[in-house]
Design a protein around this nucleic acid. Structure first.
Lengths: 145, 145
DNA sequence: GTCTTTGCAAACAGTTTGCAGCTGG
DNA sequence: CCAGCTGCAAACTGTTTGCAAAGAC
């Protein structure tokens, strides 16, 4: 379970296990497909009647990223978001619907191919990358016509 | 010249030609390879002894984007930057050196190929996209060894 | 008991806005 | 002349920080 991973990771690095950290991690574990801003995490905590200060959300979400449990991404300009860093997928690359905001992860295989192309053609060995496509998702395309 | 294009574009849309707009456009025209934040544009104006308020820089840079003369991009998380929107290139896609910050534009041909791949494999017709790779540029790689 | 973490409020950075006065057409 | 533009300061949003009190171990 995600909570066990969190506890282990915190212990390993001599951080303390606190209710706040577990709660925030839980928020992300509950909706693994979501890309949440600090504000949204904070809202979800309030919905659950958990009174955690926003400063703590900022600190925790940053900590969880350092631990490798979350990943910092950026979908719309200027707003930082976090998502669950499932170790099975990179999950960093998204296709974003400009109508409904739906965000779909680009499959790993495709990302690898792209990476290969850039490496070959630019003589640049990337350590990290960030690919975003904007367009209409199949749903919104349908409704439009 | 860039200034003529600006004047024409402003006239066409019934905006006024002002010294501030010309000056800010000039800043970008002078270093077509740069990706400037509002702060940097403001600094450059001060260096030239032009007393333009920061609010005007914000407003102007946004206007110039609307006119299609600049393009809004985002290189580091959370800071919005603008670059000259040279009509000959898309110029939206960058390879960024994590050491020196050098930013290189990914060639159009390569971008087109990537676009094609995503369209084919995901059944998603992109209207726009944004590709960023992070790594070490050849210079920094050399100095490291 | 000690050292970390939290909550709060204040500070901060980047950006937007309302308004009076200035200016281009 | 007068609508659009600018400068200024104040407001706002998202984020960070200092510090006393609370909590983990």
């Amino acid at each position: 379970m995600v909570n066990d991973i969190l506890r282990k990771e915190l212990k390993d690095r001599n951080f303390r296990i606190t209710a706040q950290r577990e709660l925030i991690m839980k928020i992300f574990a509950e909706s693994p497909e979501d890309h949440l801003s600090v504000e949204e995490v904070y809202r979800k905590l309030l919905d659950k009647r958990s009174r955690i200060s926003k400063a703590t959300v900022y600190r925790t979400v940053e900590l969880l990223s350092d631990l490798g449990l979350l990943r910092k991404i950026e979908i719309d300009e200027g707003i930082v978001r976090f998502e669950l860093a499932d170790s099975n997928k990179h999950g960093k690359h998204h296709v974003i619907c400009t109508d409904c905001g739906e965000t779909i992860t680009i499959p790993d295989k495709l990302v690898e191919k792209i990476e290969e192309m850039v490496t070959n053609e630019m003589g640049f060995e990337p350590e990290d990358h960030n690919i975003k496509f904007y367009g209409k998702c199949s749903n919104c395309k349908k409704n439009q016509k």
